[in-house]
Amino acid sequence: MSQIEIAELNVDLDDQGYLTDHNQWTKEIAVAIAGEEGIIELTDRHFVVIDFMRKEFKETGTGPSIRRLTKQSGVPTKELYALFPGGPAKKAARIAGIKKPEGCI
């Protein structure tokens, strides 16, 4: 799905493609952004990660570190990288509709 098609879902993205307001997020948007990131299907395991990231973001105002994500969500590092190939932190944050992660870990 292209950027324009994502835009048709009435969602505001910043210049790097992250949602500017996480409250606009819907599963439909997640599926659309995932498609653009090359993830054809979002499974239950993807949503374990996405839900955890959204919860963490609402509580702390920032996405979790990878270490926190893997330890707390129960999705191990290997699986996380397999679910979101080519950069899990940023891809998952984008799909989860939260800000681009700022941490180094």
Binding site: T70, T77, Y81, I105
Partner: peptide, 16 residues
């Protein structure tokens, strides 16, 4: 700051 101990960090990098 969520920086793991060395052995855990090596495992994390390897798993990644």
């Amino acid at each position: 700051l969520d920086i793991p101990p060395v052995d855990e960090f090596l495992e994390m990098i390897s798993d990644a």
